[in-house]
Computed example of a mutant assay.
Amino acid sequence: MSIGNSPEDERPFEDASEEARPSVGRALQQARIAAGLTVDDVSTATRVRIAIVHAIEADDFAPCGGDVYARGHIRTLAKAVHLDPAPLIAQYDADHGGRPAPTPAAPLFEAERIRPERRGPNWTAAMVAAIVVVIGFVGFTMFKGDDGSGKNNVADGAATDTSASPTPKSKKPADPKPEPSDSAIAAAPQDKVTVKVSAADGRSWISAKDHNGRQLFDGLLKQGESKTFQDSSKINLILGDAGAIDLFVNGKKIEDDWQPGAVERLTYTKGDPQAG
């Protein structure tokens, strides 16, 4: 035993270096336990999944998905358990090769800026130039055609066109409608009354009913149209414009001096025509 030295002085010197410092995950776990929090409490407060909290406390940072996300989770968990996140992040960087240097943005920006810009053809300018050329050509042509020879050509052309114009074909006249003949009168049935209404000189509204009052026709008769009505005993007529109507009863034309626009109410029966 050496003189003047106590047994405590002969104990080996305990190195209080970084090896004695707890790991990042161990430091977070101890702080959580000291704060009286469970893993579920920390996960609920930080929205970090329970499996990732367990992995970080076991110093397994692979589930974090990369160094950037690992540093973010360390900072979030440290604040939840009341620790200063800066020393823990520095310790994580030292254990995992340090924080990567940021990529300078200036060279990329310069390269993008000096890249030549490809431009397509200027179709607008080409279209304007083509329109100007066309307008100039048309104006020059019109100016050249405005002299005396042009007028003579127009006159000559007019004379030529007049002489060469074809003679319009004459419209074939329509065949006149035949008047009822004796054969038509003879063909009219003797036991019935037959009335034919023809709009010879214009259109007219007409109404025709049989002896029972049943409506046979009620409408407009256009010029050139005709209607024939037949009944066993009697036909009642109303002519809206009697002056435009030719009337035939039992095959015989009724010769009455009806005025244009006059309204006539007529009744015809079997035998010889008679107005009622």
Rank of each mutant, 00 (worst) to 15 (best):
E10F: 03
D15P: 09
A16I: 08
E18C: 03
E18M: 10
P22I: 03
S23W: 03
L28S: 02
I33K: 10
G36E: 09
L37R: 14
T38D: 12
D41G: 12
S43V: 06
V48C: 06
I52D: 15
I56D: 11
I56G: 12
E57T: 03
D59R: 06
F61H: 11
G65T: 08
G66V: 06
V68D: 15
Y69H: 09
A70H: 08
R71P: 02
I74P: 05
R75H: 11
A78W: 04
I89A: 07
A90F: 01
Y92M: 02
D93N: 14
A94S: 12
D95L: 09
G97C: 01
T103Q: 13
P104D: 15
A106N: 09
F109I: 00
E110G: 04
R115C: 01
R115N: 02
R118P: 08
R118N: 03
G120P: 08
N122V: 03
W123D: 06
M127Q: 10
A130R: 08
A130K: 09
I131W: 09
V132W: 03
V132L: 13
V138E: 10
T141C: 06
M142R: 12
D146K: 06
G148I: 11
G157F: 04
A159P: 00
S163N: 03
S165C: 00
K172P: 05
K177G: 05
P180S: 14
I185Q: 12
A187T: 01
Q190G: 11
D191V: 05
K192M: 14
V193H: 04
V193F: 11
V193C: 09
S198D: 11
A200K: 15
A200R: 12
G202R: 00
A208W: 00
H211W: 04
R214L: 14
L221T: 06
K227E: 06
Q230G: 09
K234P: 04
K234C: 08
I235Y: 03
L239I: 06
G240D: 01
G240E: 01
I245H: 01
I245A: 02
L247A: 04
L247M: 07
F248H: 07
F248Y: 13
G251Y: 00
K253I: 10
D256W: 00
W258K: 00
G261E: 05
A262E: 15
V263W: 00
V263T: 15
L266R: 06
G271W: 04
D272Y: 07
P273A: 07
